[in-house]
């Protein structure tokens, strides 16, 4: 984190609205990735991000260290997404997927559905990490910072997540090759 970013975070914590809005611009995409990783739904993920910012603004005084502000926002977004996920439990996942799948070409649609269902088997943290990597192309250090992970922990997480995905997608991969 460079000093300009730290300055912005500090101002945002102190209640400077301009700083907070600047921060919304820079950090909303990673938060979306986290929420999407959990929810697998764009609209819901967007809602979660918006909720997370409102909640963060209201309870920003709780953050002491500006360095940890992104991680704190990340955790709010994750909790928010988790709440939404729990609330829609009764809604069948497949409807949403099928609807999406119908929009794109059949071959791809089937493959995407396979990937999604494979992703759904992963733990939430792993899904968020995968989403941050593939949606935002972030490097490992930034992902760790955003998820509040210790240095070097992400490599193991991603390794395990992709290993699990590989096993889940084995038939599809075999068919492709």
């Amino acid at each position: 984190m460079d000093s300009a970013e730290r300055q912005i975070y500090r101002a945002a914590i102190a209640g400077d609205r301009d700083a907070f809005e600047t921060m919304i611009r820079t950090i909303s995409r990673p938060l979306f990735a986290i929420a999407y990783g959990i929810l697998q739904n764009r609209e819901e993920a967007e809602d979660a991000v918006q909720d997370a910012f409102v909640k963060a603004w209201k309870s920003r005084w709780r953050v002491r260290d500006p360095e940890k502000f992104p991680a704190w926002l990340g955790s709010i977004a994750r909790h928010r997404a988790h709440d939404i996920l729990r609330r829609r439990r009764s809604v069948p996942l497949d409807d949403d997927l099928n609807q999406l799948a119908a929009e794109i070409e059949p071959d791809n649609a089937e493959r995407h559905a396979q990937v999604r269902s494979a992703l759904a088997t992963l733990p939430e943290l792993h899904r968020s990490a995968v989403a941050l990597r593939y949606l935002e192309q972030m490097d490992y250090a930034t992902i760790e910072q955003t998820l509040g992970l210790t240095n070097g922990a992400l490599r193991g997480i991603l390794g395990r997540a992709l290993g699990a995905l590989r096993k889940e997608l084995k038939p599809a991969l075999a068919a492709m090759s």
Binding site: R29, R42, H112
Partner: peptide, 28 residues
């Protein structure tokens, strides 16, 4: 192969260009 698949899958999930604007507007 899986890397390509994941890239493809997430590519379409990417938020559009007006995503930040929407978030900001919602916040305001």
């Amino acid at each position: 192969l899986m890397n390509t698949m994941l890239n493809d899958t997430f590519e379409e999930a990417k938020p559009d260009l007006k995503f930040e604007q929407r978030t900001l507007a919602a916040f305001r």
